[in-house]
Design a protein around this nucleic acid. Sequence first.
DNA 1: TTTTGTTGATTGACGAGTCAATTAACTTCA
DNA 2: TGAAGTTAATTGACTCGTCAATCAACAAAA
Lengths: 194, 194
Amino acid sequence: MPKLGMEPIRKAALVKATIAEIGQAGTLDVTVSQIARRAGMSTALAHHYFGGKEQIFLAAMRHVLSIFGAEVRGALAVSEGPKARAEAIIRASFTAGNFRHDVISAWLNFYVLALTSPEAARLLRVYQRRLDSNLRHELRQLAPDAVDELTEGIAALIDGVYLRHALGSDGPTPARAVAPVLRFFRLALQERGL
Amino acid sequence: MPKLGMEPIRKAALVKATIAEIGQAGTLDVTVSQIARRAGMSTALAHHYFGGKEQIFLAAMRHVLSIFGAEVRGALAVSEGPKARAEAIIRASFTAGNFRHDVISAWLNFYVLALTSPEAARLLRVYQRRLDSNLRHELRQLAPDAVDELTEGIAALIDGVYLRHALGSDGPTPARAVAPVLRFFRLALQERGL
DNA sequence: TTTTGTTGATTGACGAGTCAATTAACTTCA
DNA sequence: TGAAGTTAATTGACTCGTCAATCAACAAAA
């Protein structure tokens, strides 16, 4: 049975299983053995590859973050002009994928983890900064004198709307979620005659 | 030691200890015995009064929520006119108390818990609805045709800004946090010539 | 003496991490 | 080519710790 080159395959399977398991449990309170079982291997092997539970979680979070980053880059690649590009960034935060139950679970638990795990806090800051600087780059070209305000407002709105929809009683509705953010953005531009 | 009428005192002590303990741990992963010890009693007694761990947490959350509700009512009581009252509601979400480390911790963990505990989800919805209807009541008098948009935007902005400041690298700064929300509010009014 | 308050001790379950041992695939060199 | 040696993959069984919950029993008040 032992084939060579299994490491990346197994690691990927564990990451995927971790996200699924956290999604199903709604908590970080999932056992290594649950994760390992879902990924089709023994607990010992999970430990062998990742070293410990927290490192499994962090790998899973890095994965979610990297997908998100790719989506943003993808959206930017096909958008021209600062206004369209800013809107693309906003939209990327509200794709259907980001509203999958397990992804929501991962995000919320990630926030909590960031309260205590320095490594998680670092990762989170990377995400925040990237969103910030992406937005800022476009907004500077639209309203140089109000970049800070606008960036702060839009970034916060994104997080807030996401949170409300993720936790809302009526399930997540990606399409409806973007609306308020875009409205704010356009209102702000309009006010400046753009 | 056994004095009568201990129940409310013990319960209050446990609630307070729970919040403190969650704050220190940053997680809901605190043991009943840690809580009980901090509250100055045995684990058995904690179980005796609350029945179980989850019920202790929920009591703690109800407490945080009720304090928050009281603050909003207090702020409303001294504000006249829809504009001032709306601003009062906004400001109430950003009092120093809400940015205490342990309260932040409680909130984030509460969000996570709401993903799986129906009772927690119910409580959360109570909070969300109250904020919504409070805002809506004032906004209707300012801009009847845009109540929905405005309420949604402001509520989301409150949550988002709170989240960002709670998790931001530079510690929470209540004063700076309100600014973007008030800015948005005033901008929206101004746009409507109010 | 019944009710309320209180605890130490115990139980039963579960979980993270470790280890020794097994298997298969690759490598080397006689 | 094929025997001997090396390394990656993999696991079952085990350790050690922890924790929620229960219980039997004691103390004080009413």
